[in-house]
Design a protein around this nucleic acid. Structure first.
Lengths: 325, 325
DNA sequence: CTGAAAGCGCTAACAT
DNA sequence: ATGTTAGCGCTTTCAG
């Protein structure tokens, strides 16, 4: 068995409570004792059992994160932010992939609840009733989904789409298609709000989908966009946009000469595509860090509830250009 | 506070041990009692505290996974396999990103040790001494790194490279460049072994690097490859290969007409690149699942130590072609 | 400033 | 088949 606090106490010739204090509440023990205890602990390679500690303190020093789909590169980048910030705060992270399914997500939250201090839900796919079920289980911070009276980190989704629309309008486009993401996606609804901006420009918007947020869906959508007669397309996310690009290339439709394409998320591969993809940068990693901060604040009962939406920024690259005449 | 086993016991009019048994060892309790207890537990929304259980059983039902870099899409796909298989086996997973650093990795293992039953190390970057330090802490299964007498899941790295070499030789290439990955990478050493195959074909191989396994490194390497006069390049991984492709496009070097490019990992974006990338498929998700199985076997003291290497397969796409004459 | 003792939620002997 | 009891490793009163 591993070395316990008892072993350290014995070796240092003190009681377990002294060891505990020397390590967790240094100010409560005499300098000399503290030094000795710490030295012994170090020598023995003692590491407190956090599970045992959690049992009594009610704090596990663990955070949970649930994402809809790990293979979408947007989530790993967010995860990386969560990871990094959590480690700085000496917390470990539990990860789960809900496979784009609200019911699974709810089950995952319940399963995690006892082992974590709080959980971060990225782009939660849960329905209202599902949400209701888990809300009391454990403190939750949402990323990219606003839930009344619940802390969340939101990216400016509508603003991003709005910028995309302005950009396309400035390029002379009169008819754009929007490729909807999953129906359960809150961000999809937000992004649609940004599309209203099109009216101001007298731009027509054709809604397509909903689609699964995948490359293949983008390929499928490309043909629909062409058939609809749009000269520009805004996709729910980059992965779909990349699919559009691929299918367009296959069909010999030049981008951006005959079709402009805009994505969302600024995943790393957006910049590596040919042509490089114009996209809305949602700052995933930053959002991940912010979510951890918010959660920690909530746990400390500091007020971290309200945070301004993170700013999003349109990154103009080579996939958008003047409307064909 | 949440509902505990005591609450259930009281509500069901039985002792806590009966509740415990009804839930964990159903055969030890009368059918009728079991049903009643379970009903009550269900009604109260009881969920056993796994940390408390772990304290006594010594099993946490948690697995740890450490990957070098989450933003490399190869790891999320592996992670997805781990995730899925772990869930099937009712285990949760702790995730950490070592940032390509062996020392951090060692620290992470130590930090996780107490809260997990075992850990899976993907493409471990630890040095031998670092390894030595953590090996006793907790059962470990390696993915893509062979450690004597330790269970591991290995992909056939050398075989993959060998296939790539054969493929290029068949296309008439006489001089290829290999883009080395990080020095600490075991897979890099393995992949080099496969390069020996070049002798048989009388093919010259120029070694470049080591490089960080990133897109930017690929861009940088592309110019070096050109300067070296090679007609083909095998990159340590797909992300680098994509960088090569991008830089080559920028410099107006046609692929594969003037340069053939081979990657490794078959990340999803390899197929989406232009031209689509020829690459070695290492079966990441499958490896993730296999690692969980192996770990579970080790924990159950079934012998899961030895497993045949997973097969790798060259996926020929558009980025390789006949050598220029 | 330090030690003894209680107990977090649970399981595993040991009784009955 | 079920209840009682003793801890798992730790923190935290409560005494000294």
């Amino acid at each position: 068995m591993a070395v316990t606090i008892q072993d350290v106490a014995k070796a240092a010739g003190v009681s377990v409570s002294t060891v505990s204090r020397a390590l967790s509440s240094p100010e409560m023990v005499r300098e000399e004792t503290r030094a000795r205890v710490r030295a012994v602990a170090e020598r023995l390679g003692y590491r407190p059992n956090l599970a045992a500690r959690g049992l009594i303190t009610g704090r596990t020093a663990n955070l949970g994160v649930i994402v809809p789909d790990l293979t979408n590169p947007f989530f790993p980048s967010m995860l990386k932010g969560v990871q990094a910030r959590a480690r700085e705060a000496a917390h470990a992270v539990f990860l789960a992939d809900s496979q784009e399914d609200g019911a699974q997500e709810a089950g995952l939250v319940a399963a995690m609840a006892k082992q974590v201090d709080g959980v971060i839900l990225c782009a939660s796919r849960m329905t209202e009733p599902q949400l209701e079920e888990v809300l009391g289980l454990v403190p939750i911070v949402f990323i990219n989904r606003a839930v009344p009276a619940r802390p969340s980190v939101i990216m400016d989704n509508a603003g991003g789409t709005r910028q995309a629309v302005d950009h396309l309008a400035a390029l002379g486009h009169r008819h754009a298609a929007y490729l909807n993401g999953p129906r359960s996606s809150w961000t999809n609804r937000e992004r649609r709000k940004g599309l209203r901006r099109a009216e101001r420009h007298g731009m027509k918007v054709t809604h397509l989908g909903p689609f699964a947020p995948r490359f293949e869906a983008g390929q499928q959508a490309a043909d629909l966009v062409l058939a609809a007669g749009a000269t520009a397309v805004i996709a729910y996310n980059d992965v779909m946009a990349l699919g559009v690009l691929a299918r367009l290339a296959e069909r010999g439709v030049p981008v951006p000469a005959r079709m402009s394409v805009v994505g969302c998320d600024d995943i790393s591969f957006a910049a590596m595509a040919t042509p490089a993809l114009t996209t809305v940068d949602l700052r995933g990693e930053q959002a991940g860090r912010a979510a951890v901060d918010t959660l920690l604040n909530v746990l400390a009962e500091r007020d971290g509830t309200r945070r301004p939406a993170l700013e999003s920024a349109l990154i103009v690259r080579a996939s958008t250009g003047p409307a064909p005449t």
